[in-house]
Design a protein around this nucleic acid. Structure first.
Lengths: 166, 166
DNA sequence: TTAATCGTAGATATTATTTATCCACGATTA
DNA sequence: TAATCGTGGATAAATAATATCTACGATTAA
């Protein structure tokens, strides 16, 4: 059971974009530099996020990415599903049907109870993720510390703008 | 996010072993044939389960595997952790610290809130798995159907015993 | 005692997936 | 019109999962 690095990158990028002032954008290159990760790889996840309606893109010079909706309307589940895909972690390959001594077919009219239990756990996982929004993350950060992700995003954007002005 | 096939095999094997009569065992080869999977690969998982104290082994001719404790004392979480390892699915690589504009160090005295949220979801997942035992699975199966995993395990064991007698 | 059977452990191959990179393309705007 | 950006697909490299094999030690039925 493992979650790809893309999830961490995507959540941090979304949080950083939440700190932008109205109309502001950050390019994929700027986001990658900001987080110290590969631009071309981050691009893949950013496209997944824009495809899922979490981010939107502004083409052309001075273009980039920004949030497609309010931080409080973006849950961690939205991001995880966009990046990792909707498939559940547990997949039943029906090995109960593969043995040498076949059971009566009516035994299989009900779904595998093991699968049902595993998916129940996964629903609990997703429910918890769905109940946490990007806005919640930002609120927890700024509640007890002056150096929040949002503020850092702003600082970096200014840096980026200065660089572009040169 | 993905769970290995070993989890499904391990749970089904544990359920099958729950159906054995007192003192009965099933060899790794028998369990593999029963489920139609590779013996040598299943072996790896069975060893993990016995190492975790879920199964125990009986060596020698007529040896094999059996439960090390009662079905109601074996949770799905026990099995998942034994097979997949205890590491959480989400791992924070602290990309927030990697950017070009370092933040004041005191910003990092608190753990990453994103990580905290992801681990909170994972705790919910594990709690749900911990609350379901092998006995629960068997009960749900036999509640409304005569062909339960336990009964099938018995039938197969008898088949296996007959084979050994020859 | 002996030979068969079983599990243990580690090494190793094979396959699949993830991660990462690159390039040609179309859209937009200074 | 030229620079900059995102899009999308192809592709390579790295990593992890899957699967197999071999030698070994323990146990027990004959």
């Amino acid at each position: 059971m493992k979650l790809g690095d893309g999830v961490e990158q995507s959540i941090h990028c979304t949080a950083a974009l939440s700190g932008l002032s109205a109309g502001g954008v950050l390019s994929a290159a700027a986001l990658a530099e900001f987080h110290g990760v590969s631009t071309s790889y981050l691009l893949k996840h950013l496209q997944a996020l824009s495809g899922a309606g979490i981010l939107e893109t502004v083409p052309g010079p001075k273009g980039g990415y920004r949030l497609a909706k309010r931080p409080e309307d973006i849950s961690l589940l939205d991001i995880v599903l966009a990046v990792e895909g909707p498939a559940p972690a547990f997949r039943c390959s029906e090995i109960r049907q593969r043995g040498p001594n076949p059971l009566p077919q009516r035994y299989f009219t009900k779904p595998c109870q093991i699968t049902a239990a595993m998916l129940r756990a996964e629903r609990a996982y997703r429910a918890e993720l769905a109940s946490t929004s990007i806005a919640d993350i930002l609120a927890e950060l700024s509640a007890d510390d002056d150096g929040g992700i949002a503020a850092r995003g702003c600082a970096f954007m200014e840096l980026h703008e200065r660089k572009a002005a040169r």
